[in-house]
Design a protein around this nucleic acid. Sequence first.
DNA 1: ATTTAGTAAAAAATCGATTATTTACTTGGC
DNA 2: GCCAAGTAAATAATCGATTTTTTACTAAAT
Lengths: 223, 223
Amino acid sequence: MTQHIQPPTSTASSRIYDILRKDLVGGRFAAGEKLAINALKEQYQVGLSPLREALNKLAAYGLLIQENQRGFRVPTLSRNELDDIAQMRLALEGMAFEQAIVHGDAAWEADLLAAEHRLKCADMTLDKDDEWERLHTQFHRTLVAPCGSVWLLRFIEQLHDQFDRYRRLGPRMPTVRQELDQQHHELVALAMKRDGQAARALLDDHIRTSYDVALQCFLSHSR
Amino acid sequence: MTQHIQPPTSTASSRIYDILRKDLVGGRFAAGEKLAINALKEQYQVGLSPLREALNKLAAYGLLIQENQRGFRVPTLSRNELDDIAQMRLALEGMAFEQAIVHGDAAWEADLLAAEHRLKCADMTLDKDDEWERLHTQFHRTLVAPCGSVWLLRFIEQLHDQFDRYRRLGPRMPTVRQELDQQHHELVALAMKRDGQAARALLDDHIRTSYDVALQCFLSHSR
DNA sequence: ATTTAGTAAAAAATCGATTATTTACTTGGC
DNA sequence: GCCAAGTAAATAATCGATTTTTTACTAAAT
């Protein structure tokens, strides 16, 4: 008997939401830019209603600024905000990782190994970075997944998107990426050793290293 | 010369958003309920487009669940989620309050005194609770306002809305409210004394007390 | 020179109607 | 009686057009 698996239903609205989210995080729009809805409509070949619904969701999510009667703008970037985001990542991801180490089971360890391996392989074989970004996001999601708090995971995801707006301003830096990949590997090792102390310390390092990268991106970009 | 202050522009979409947010937090809709968009349209006397835009925003904010091709539902309630929300409030509001005590200036102290006084007076004179809820929210917002992190404030606000969905399931309890009001008063006192340790301890107590209330509300409601 | 008022163009928001999808119901087969 | 397929009704999503508001531009007035 065949399983009647529904093709994961999507709507024009949800599709354009995903695309715009990716493009906003990836820096395809300039910070502060005013979005020309009609232009987007053409560019993405989508109707006005689903487009507006997606923009509304993105505004509630924090990837757009909505001003009554004057449409949608891409949020500006500032060093203060980057610092804020990095600080929050340190606090929330640290908290989540510690809990994940307490509660994560064998399946989690397997997921971690798999995610780390996929990430390590991706950046060698692939030219385009989209795939690396996806796997990188997935790795960090896995790291904190079993923390036990739905809301904590939600906030962390949101902060990642915000953080990546800064980090992805700049070009890829192979040297730094190698260092980060090394940290990814060690994070998995410490997590599996259930060494909460050391793991959290390393995660702090990792976030701070990423922060340095993002800050460089931001500074050279705003000059 | 007269200042040309624009009447704070609003749109049908933003108005219905505010109303629905209030009604969702206030428990006017049953948990798990499927929203009948056409009914809402009539009930709130609003067009379909602004209504849908508001619902999309509320879903992104977490006060609604959106499922592709099957509209919007009110999120269900569960003890696990209440625990999660309360835990997160403890962590995030504690963090924010400590920072607020470090960075808050004289203007903050004034705001605190004012917010506390307004709240204390409100529950005596007013019959309807809407005003008390508004002032209570405002008090807690003031408490953490100068914490220095826009994102932290944003998350805390979101958690408050979620928490209140549970707390406002039940009837008003004058006895408990008196205890909470007492804590509000002491929170202000400790904040102004800049006693971060004690202040945070009391805020923890305060949240735990509120949690007990909310839990009772939830338990008796789900029975 | 700067403001003020007026107007045309552009853009945002909303409406009314249409299309697509799901849900509820019915009927026929086993 | 119970499941499956088919159909009708209900609902969600989307489209195309209209209305409202803002913005950009011009010209007159202080």
